[in-house]
Structures are given as structure tokens and as C-alpha cells.
């Protein structure tokens, strides 16, 4: 899996490409923006082909590190396969999920400014 990181209005956007599983989860978990409890992160999953329980675990774990667990990690552009895994595990309840990355960034920005 590759992680491409960009930033927009102070929000980190991580684009995941490939497979998020037990092998690649540490890469994600150790990403600097993911670790930072203050930073809002939008995870763009458009090119994420597959996720397993370790992958979900890494994302859930990351959101637990954030100061605001529901708004700290925001997900966008899931394909159907990834969405189904989130649904089966009921992990979708822990996140705000957008179908558009820019909308997700807007949402994260308003959240952040509301908090400041």
C-alpha cells in the first residue's frame, strides 16, 4: 500500500492506494498526521482496494488517539467492497463518511474552527 499525503486548509488528506491489512497497517499507524492528536485527517479511500480486520483496527485505533474521536478521522470515497467491510463490522458508526473528499475537508475545517 502507498500513502500519499497532501494538505488543505490545515487538514491532512491521506490517499490510500492498494491494500490495508496486517502487513501495511503499521505504515498507516505510524504516519505523523495520524499520530498527532490535534490534527484532523481525511482518509481518501478511492483507490483502496481491500481492507481487513487489522486495517479497520488501525483506523479505529487512530481515531481513538484523536482529541475528538468522531471528528478527528474522516473517511471519504469508499468503494463498495470497503464500505461493506465497515458495515459488517459496524465500524461505520464510529466515523463520518463522505462520498467526496473536498466535502470531507470542508466538514473537518468547520469542525476545527468550531473547536478553536
Amino acid at each position: 500500500m502507498t500513502i500519499t499525503e497532501t494538505s488543505q486548509i490545515g487538514i491532512a488528506i491521506l490517499s490510500l492506494n492498494g491494500t490495508l491489512d496486517a502487513l501495511s497497517a503499521p505504515d498507516f499507524r505510524n504516519n505523523r498526521s495520524v499520530i498527532d492528536p490535534e490534527k484532523s485527517v481525511v482518509i481518501d479511500m478511492e483507490n483502496l482496494d481491500f481492507i481487513d480486520s487489522s486495517g479497520i483496527g488501525a483506523i479505529v485505533g487512530a481515531s481513538r488517539q484523536k482529541r475528538q474521536p468522531v471528528g478527528g478521522i474522516i473517511l471519504s470515497c469508499m468503494n463498495d467492497r470497503v464500505r461493506k467491510v465497515f458495515e459488517i463490522t459496524n465500524a461505520q458508526k464510529l466515523f463520518h463518511i463522505f462520498d467526496d473528499t473536498i466535502a470531507a475537508v470542508d466538514f473537518a475545517a468547520t469542525r476545527q474552527s468550531a473547536r478553536a
Binding site: R83, E87, K93, I97, D100
Partner: peptide, 21 residues
């Protein structure tokens, strides 16, 4: 197509979460 929302999402929030759609 399918998507998920939170129990307290307003209509405005729903439209935002499905902006592409």
C-alpha cells in the same frame, strides 16, 4: 447506491456527505 449517516445528522449534513452523488 448506499451510504452511512450518523443519528444526529441534519439534512444539510446528509447533503454534504453525499456531495458527489
Amino acid at each position: 447506491s448506499y451510504g452511512s449517516i450518523h443519528p444526529d445528522d441534519t439534512i444539510h449534513a446528509m447533503l454534504g456527505k453525499n456531495r458527489k452523488f
